[in-house]
Amino acid sequence: MKRLSRLRRHRAAGPVLLIFALFTIGTTFQVASAVNQENATVQSRSTAIAEGKEIFLRGCSSCHGLNAEGQEIAPSLIGVGAASVDFQVGTGRMPMADMSQQAVRKAPVYSPEEVHALATYVASLAPGPAVPGDELLNYERDGSVAEGGQLFRTNCAMCHNFAGQGGALTQGKYAPTVMGVQPKHIYEAMITGPQAMPVFSDKTLTPEEKLSIIKWIKSAESEPQLGGVALGRVGPVTEGLLAWTLGIVLLIGVAVWLAAKAR
């Protein structure tokens, strides 16, 4: 704790703290969203559609239109598929908290059952990418972590950073961190291209390759700190900041003590 209080006194403690705060928030969301999704398939399809429509009319139609046809402020949902709904609502991005540049990941508003109902309803409007099943998502078995790393660096790292920590896009948009995201949601993001993210088609990035990417992300996520505090894994900026704060301040502190006359 001593180190923390020393850090806190530095002028530049803000950014470092912010990174810690973001990490903490991220972890909280991870825990919050990792609620077990069980027996959502128990309901019959038609009741799910009806229930989904009800939720839609209550929570989504004010922006997306009564028939999900879209309005000026929100896109049409016809043909976006169940995967898109599952991603957007399941990660808490929808419903949006405010009309900001970008929907942020937060604790989901709806339960997994409600998300399923909503997705079934939207999928009933027009065909679109379906929610990947558990059998498909067996990345531990079907993925290769080394290949996943290469694919991640070619296809993802330019936006999400080399360690999946996210990065800046234009005009205040940003690629969010991919740490602490459910494999299902990562997969859905790749096939649906939410918000600014492009779509990664199954022919150019095969399902096995997608699983490899997920496997690499999970490996990076669970990788313990091999060389000490990770400093946000954002590269030389935080490293330079630490050297200019903790490093040089410690040294100058000792220099002041050294040159002060003993009493």
């Binding site: 790393g149 790292a157 080399f162 360690a163 990076a220 091999l226 000490g228 400093l231 490293e239």
Partner: peptide, 24 residues
């Protein structure tokens, strides 16, 4: 510093490839 703070975790960056780049 070398003991407590990681610097340039090269294993996460991966080998260089001119077709790849990291944000930031």
């Amino acid at each position: 510093l070398g003991a407590v703070a990681s610097i340039n975790p090269i294993w996460l960056y991966g080998p260089y490839n001119p077709g790849q780049v990291s944000a930031g």
